[in-house]
């Protein structure tokens, strides 16, 4: 996935000379995860540059650059370090088009490596997507596979609105065969059925898509066919795909790493109540991180939704 993201940035930088890449250590080092590896050497330090260590300024300055006609792709080094930028993102980036009555858009992409499962220290495993999804004016994207990460990053950079782009760290080293810019590319705002099944829909995004597919594989061995729906985009949410899948299966489980209370899963469940209530055979359940701070890495496997916890929820809705 790192290489796919890197290629997306390379092609965007190459095709549009207004595209910029900025952030902490994105230049010579190529980013702490190497997503920007080699880009400064190829495109120069005016278009790919390191900033001082100040996240609010990275976001605020990106807005100024966008007003001056540039298309900044800013990197927040880690999920847990993105919070100083929240004021700029919420107060200005999200509101600028609205405030200007549509006259000035701010086509900024803020990339945030997110979520856990990589054995990291405190502040390096958080899932802050609900903060952004709750903020009107932001698109929120979270790919699950390398090729989709490529497609969605390309689409995010081309998008006229600001996009918060969540990269699932634990999938950074995942591999996938396929064509970039292929016919399978879906735009922002479209979910994708990754596995068809008739018994229950498992809805996920980011790293939890692979976990849900693993659960579906295990369930199939026991004779339960799970449909896995990869949301890909949290805002705007693909309401039609969500309702269509659950109308087929009549049952749903939502999976994410972020804590339960007011997590994005609550939004998904509410949408299903509105759009698929008559089709539901059982209550929709959520399998999520717990309502605790992200725990120390030595016990994070007990916090993250596991195949077993997903299967347990599936059992409960299918046996309802």
């Amino acid at each position: 996935m790192v290489k796919a993201l890197n290629e997306a940035l390379r092609r965007s930088l190459s095709e549009d000379d207004r595209t910029l890449v900025l952030g902490e250590d994105v230049g010579v080092l190529g980013g702490v995860f190497r997503v920007t590896d080699g880009l400064q050497a190829e495109f120069g330090d005016k278009r790919v540059f390191d900033t001082p260590l100040a996240e609010a300024a990275i976001a605020g300055v990106s807005l100024g650059l966008a007003l001056a006609g540039w298309r900044p792709v800013a990197e927040m080094q880690f999920d847990g370090f993105s919070y100083p930028a929240l004021d700029q993102v919420i107060s200005h980036v999200a509101k600028y088009r609205y405030r200007s009555r549509g006259r000035q858009t701010v086509p900024i992409v803020i990339r945030i490596p997110f979520a856990g499962g990589i054995g990291a220290a405190e502040h390096h495993s958080e899932s802050p997507e609900a903060y952004y999804a709750h903020t009107a004016g932001l698109k929120v994207v979270a790919p699950s596979t390398p090729i989709d990460a490529y497609d969605l990053l390309r689409a995010s950079i081309a998008d006229p609105d600001p996009v918060i782009f969540f990269e699932p760290k634990s999938r950074y080293w995942s591999k996938e065969e396929g064509d970039l810019d292929g016919a399978s590319a879906l735009p922002i705002g479209k979910a994708r059925v990754l596995r068809e099944g008739s018994d229950c829909t498992v809805i996920a995004y980011g790293a939890m898509v692979a976990r849900s597919l693993a659960a579906a594989h295990a369930a199939a061995a026991r004779g339960t066919e799970l449909e896995v729906l990869d949301l890909r985009t949290l805002v705007p949410l693909d309401l039609d795909a969500l309702a269509a899948s659950v109308r087929r299966t009549g049952r749903a489980v939502v999976v994410h790493e972020a804590p339960l209370t007011a997590g994005f899963g609550a939004e998904v469940v509410a949408r299903l109540m509105e759009d698929a209530f008559d089709y539901l055979e059982a209550p929709v359940l959520r399998v999520t991180g717990y309502d605790t701070p992200y725990p120390p890495a030595t016990i994070e496997s007990h916090y993250l939704p596991s195949v077993e916890r997903i299967l347990d929820a599936v059992d409960r809705v299918t046996n309802y």
Binding site: G60, V61, W70
Partner: peptide, 11 residues
């Protein structure tokens, strides 16, 4: 303040 700085950087 940050918007002015970003705009000036862009210019």
């Amino acid at each position: 303040i940050l918007h002015a700085v970003g705009y000036a950087m862009g210019a």
